[in-house]
């Protein structure tokens, strides 16, 4: 019985707290971006950049804190590219997102091969401490959920953010700078996605190619299932993290099929079988100033 509790209750709890946080960071990032009216399908790419630069900067500086900053800056740089393309040049947001995914995957793995070589990053590097097996970044993820909920729904900034995502013309009319709000929101999303990627690579103390493995897209899924609201998004991330944790410890059956659960749940939610998910009204549409 005691063993059962150890393996299943604690084990699964810790597994959930390993798999959910990257999703939480990235999904909150997606929330900022999409609430401002910019679809960000490139969370995956920004996480990949974050995963690599967290390790690279930590190796170079010997500090995981600076590593985290590096991860955020890398995500922000890609996000800024997305913002320039979609806000200033009114490029299609999906096209730009696709470009960023391609650029991030190519660039990061190119840098990984040229900077670390075939043998990969050194074994010894500074990573966030894990008291009791749970990374220090976990409370940060949870705090950011609360902070996001507060910022988006209780502050003037949040009101402006939502207004440019719902009705940019009206927001513009009352003097809100739509472009600036969208730039800020997209760049925040890059910083958060970068943190999500850093969590993944710090967790195993190294960067390997394709290690983000679809987590950016699961975060996008959690954003939709959580209906663009911070607390429901948190629960969606925990659910998806739990199902990944379960898949990783299943002694029987197929972990792969279990790992497809987040995607299937999202399809069901999108198809409106369990309460329709409705995106912010202006999401995906470029705003052209008159």
């Amino acid at each position: 019985m005691e063993q059962f509790i150890d393996v299943w209750i604690f084990g699964l709890g810790i597994a959930t707290l390993t798999y959910a946080p990257p999703l939480i960071f990235a999904a909150l990032g997606g929330l900022f971006s999409e609430r401002s009216g910019i679809v960000n399908i490139a969370l995956e790419g920004m996480m990949t950049a974050g995963a690599f630069f967290a390790i690279y900067v930590s190796v170079q500086t010997g500090s995981w804190v600076i590593g985290l900053v590096g991860a955020m800056l890398a995500g922000m740089a890609l996000a800024a590219l997305h913002a320039v393309a979609t806000v200033t040049f009114q490029a299609d947001q999906i096209v730009s997102g696709t470009a960023i995914i391609l650029i991030a995957a190519g660039l990061v793995n190119f840098l990984n091969l040229t900077l670390f070589g075939a043998e990969g990053s050194p074994a010894e590097l500074s990573t966030p401490p894990k008291p009791g097996g749970v990374s220090l970044l976990v409370p940060l993820a949870l705090a950011l959920v609360a902070l996001t909920a507060f910022v988006v729904f209780k502050t003037p900034f949040g009101l402006r953010l939502r207004s440019v995502g719902e009705h940019p013309r009206a927001a513009d009319t009352v003097g809100i700078n739509v472009y600036r709000m969208r730039y800020i929101a997209v760049i925040i999303s890059g910083a958060l996605a970068g943190l999500g990627g850093a969590f993944i690579s710090f967790n195993v103390s190294s960067y390997t190619e394709n290690m983000v493995a679809g987590n950016g897209f699961i975060a996008l899924a959690a954003l939709i299932v959580g209906k663009w609201k911070p607390v429901p998004v948190l629960f969606a991330c925990l659910l998806f993290g739990f199902s990944q944790g379960l898949a990783s410890r299943l002694p029987f059956g197929s972990p792969e099929l279990l790992n497809s659960i987040p995607y299937i749940i999202t399809l069901v939610a999108l198809a409106g079988f369990v309460g329709k998910s409705v995106a912010p009204a202006a999401v995906g549409k470029p705003y052209v100033k008159h």
């Binding site: 590219l81 393309a85 730009s96 960023i100 391609l102 995957a105 660039l107 793995n109």
Partner: peptide, 26 residues
Amino acid sequence: LPSGVATKLIGVIQGVIVLFVGIDLV
């Protein structure tokens, strides 16, 4: 070069092409 390096670089170029075609305004 280590296998794969140049292919990654081409991935970047493909991405940049998509981005530039996407922002074809310029």
